[in-house]
Each structure stands twice: as C-alpha cells, then as structure tokens.
Design a protein around this nucleic acid. Structure first.
Lengths: 205, 205
DNA sequence: TTGTTTACTGAACATCGTTCATTATGTTTG
DNA sequence: CAAACATAATGAACGATGTTCAGTAAACAA
C-alpha cells in the first residue's frame, strides 16, 4: 500500500512548489508586495489551495524563514578552518553583516519581521532555528573564554552582547536608519564600526 | 485680514486632532491594527478627510515618529547633570533601552518600521530627527574622547558602534528574538549584556 | 444677492487574507 | 464494472484595507 506514501510525497512536493514560488516573488518584489494571490498565480493554482498546505500567511513565512536559517548556518561553516577562536568570532560577525547586506529580505524575515514569530507563538513552540544559530555563536565565545582570549566567564552574556552589536549594525542599515551618514559613506562606516568593536573586545572583554 | 491666520490655526488644530487620535489608537492596539478608517471613526470624520491633512498613511506615521523623537530627546535631558562624560554615555544607553522597553510602539516607529522612512524618501529629505538624536550621542562620545576616557579618536565611528549595540539589544527584544533565553530571563540578560558592554568599552575603547 | 473658494463626504476602486459550499478527481468497496 | 466514499481544488464570497474623486454644503468675496 504505497499510495499513502505517494500522497505524502505529493504533499511535500506541493509545499515545496509553493515555498519556491513564494521565495522567488519575495526576493524579486520584497515582502510587502507579495500576496497569497500572487503566489497562487505564480504556481497556477487557486489562492484557496495554498491554505490546504499552510495554515495562514504567517506559517508560510515561517517556513521560508527556516530555509533562510539553513542558508545562514551554511555560510557560517567556513569559520571552522580558522586558526584562533578569536579569529572565528571576528569572522562570524563579519559573515552575519555580509549575510544581511547580500540577502536583505531573508535577514528581515529571520531577525526583524513579526510574521514568523507570530506563527510559532500560537503553537507555543520554541524558536529552534534561532536557538541553534545562537548556539553556534555561543560555542565560539566559549572557545574564546577557554583559550583565555576573553576574560569574562559567561559565554551566553558575552554572546548576546556580540550578537546585539552586529545585529544592530545590520538592522539600522537595512531599515534605512543610517541615511544620516550619507548614501556612500554608510557602508564603509558600518565596516569601520565593526572593526572598532572587534578591536575593543579584543582589548577589554 | 485675520481669516487666513484663523484658517491656518484651524488646519493645525485638525492635524493635531488626527495625530492625537492616531497616537491613542496606535498605543492601545499596536500599529498593525490601526487603519485610516479607525482613526476617522475616532475623530468622527470621514476617512477621506484625513487625506486633506496628510498625503498618505506613511506621512501620518512620519508625523507621529517626529513626536516620539521629541519625547526621547526629552528623556535624554537629565544626563546633563551627571558628573563624568563616561557616566553620561552609560546612562544614555540605559535610557535608550528603557525607552524601547516602556514605549515599544514608539520605538518601533522611530527605529524599526519602514513607513516613516518611506515617507521622507520620496521627499528626498534628510532624516532630521535621527540626525539630531545621533548628534546628542556623538557629542557625549566626543566629551569622552576629549577627557581621555575613550582613546579612539573618531566620535562618529565610536558613536555608531555604541548605538548599534544598544539598538541591537532593544530590537532583538522587541521583535521577540530573545525568546530563546526564556520569558523570565530575557529582560535581566539584556541588562547584564549591557552592563558587560559598558564594562568592556570602559576598558578597551 | 450673487459668484467663488473651501471643507467635507459617500461611494467606489482595487486589493488584501481568509473561509466555505461546491465540483472534480481519484480510491476503495460491493 | 458500478456505486459509495474520500480527497484535492476551486469560485465566489466576506469583511477588511489604502486611496481617489465627483459631488455637496458651507463660508467667504464681490
């Protein structure tokens, strides 16, 4: 009785098709301009069909946000080859900022938008993707502590402080709050601010 | 010929009335649940009337965002009484975070939402409120540099780094990305992370 | 008292997320 | 093979949304 399994496969395939179309439109036009009807048009199905595979729009965007986290975690992979824990930490921050810069919509979905968080709130679930990603950071910070490169003993606290700084840079940039520095200077100033941060924690953390 | 002036006064009064109603509904129900029709109902006018005083919804929320900036700048005022520049800097960060915590909707409007920035983009204007607020920070940083409390010479660069950290903490908190730390621990962890940041820049910046 | 400017509105447009009765399709049973 | 059932997909609708515009009524000017 392989029929049930085929049905399951077809269901997965359909979810994949919807997410693919959603992602495409999302990256092309930005979140605000993508509607359920647009997505339905793209895959040549009725809008109502999408609701057979996703509870609502929040859940659809939550699924997209999960994909984006897989991408980010992948981009973190190369840091393993670096020599010292402190170099790993520095490169991780740089990768976080670069990810935000090169994938603004994905970053928005992962760390700024409300929709994905609203999706898991009603399911009273934990935010697993975020937890895993932070764990990667926290582990590197712990390495820094163990090797003596960081003196402060609490990896979670230090990790949050570091996350906040790089996230702040990325978020202020993406939400256009850096326009006060001028269109051409804001990117370099952002990089300089991050360099200064790295230099500071190397000395004082 | 005081008629023109009275007309002007009435016009200002009407704008004030609209903004007051919008602010009230905004704080009560959150941005996402406030529509032009709600605001019109609140002041007992037709929805179309609002468009006689504001170009569109973005411009209305831009005006609200200006009010919010006046409030924030006011809350920064007491730092003038503090002794050392470094104490001023520390207290400013704390005030920024507290402002976000106690006025989540206003903070969102000022530093996260797209709407207010979209309003000035088409007017190709500069973001004056943000510029002024950052200037306040930058001045304090410059004091720290002049007094030798901060060694790095560039106040703008250091200011952006500091702004990013406190903003990152506030933004991650408000957009519910700190749920990974647990409901009861996230607020204290946030404060601890800020303390650690202050300690770090006192040592290494 | 006219004519004209101004303030306001009701109704409409296009779009949105979402639901639901109905149809079409595929599967199982007699 | 035919009848009964289960599933997938849909068209049409609901109540919203932001925004526009022709039309009305009141305030002003001549």
């Amino acid at each position: 009785m392989g029929i049930l399994e085929r049905k399951e496969r077809e269901r997965e395939e359909m979810r994949r098709l919807i997410l693919e179309a959603a992602q495409k439109l999302f990256l092309a036009n930005g979140y605000e301009k993508v509607s359920i009807r647009n997505i339905a048009d793209e895959i040549e199905y009725s809008p109502a069909t999408i609701y057979l595979y996703f509870k609502d729009k929040n859940e659809l965007f939550f699924a997209l946000h999960q994909q984006a986290f897989r991408k980010l975690i992948n981009e973190f992979a190369p840091i393993a080859h670096l020599q010292t824990p402190m170099d790993k930490l520095e490169e991780m921050g740089r990768l976080y900022i670069r990810f935000a810069f090169e994938n603004p919509e994905l970053f928005d979905l992962m760390f700024i938008m409300n929709a994905p968080m609203d999706a898991i709130e009603c399911r009273e679930d934990i935010w697993d993707d975020g937890h895993q990603a932070f764990q990667v950071l926290q582990n590197v910070v712990q390495e820094c502590i163990d090797s003596g490169a960081i003196q402060h003993p609490d990896a979670e606290r230090a990790g949050l402080m570091i996350w906040s700084t790089v996230h702040g840079l990325a978020a202020l940039f993406l939400r256009k709050r850096m326009m006060i520095f001028g269109e051409e200077r804001k990117k370099t100033l952002m990089d300089e601010a991050y360099d200064l941060f790295v230099q500071t924690i190397r000395k004082g953390l």
